[in-house]
Amino acid sequence: MELAFDREAAKRERIAFVRTYAAWVKKTPNAEWSREQAVLIDSLVENARNMPLSPRIYIDRVAKTTKARRHLQNKTV
C-alpha cells in the first residue's frame, strides 16, 4: 500500500511552526518560556535516564546513524 505523503509540504509546515514558536518565545518573558520548555526537556531527560540501554548498544547505534547520514550527505553534495 502506498501512503500519500507530501514530504515537502510537511517540511514547510514544520518550518512555519518553528517560526511561530520562535515569535512566541521572543515576546514571552524568559522565566515563562524557559519554564514551559523545561517541562518538555526534563520529561525527555527523565525518560532517557530510565531507558534500559547499554553503552555498547548505544555506541553501535550512533555509529550506524552517523554512517547513514554521511552516505546521504555524499549523495546529495
Binding site: V25, T28, P29, N30, A31, S34, R35, A38, I41, D42
Partner: peptide
C-alpha cells in the same frame, strides 16, 4: 525573551535551567 546582546556575550536573565542545562 529578554536578551542582553553584545559582541561575544549574550545575557539571558531569569532563565529557568533545565536538567539538560544542568548536565
Amino acid at each position: 525573551m529578554e536578551l542582553q546582546y553584545s559582541d561575544r556575550e549574550i545575557g539571558v536573565s531569569e532563565k529557568y535551567l533545565t536538567q539538560l542545562d544542568r548536565f
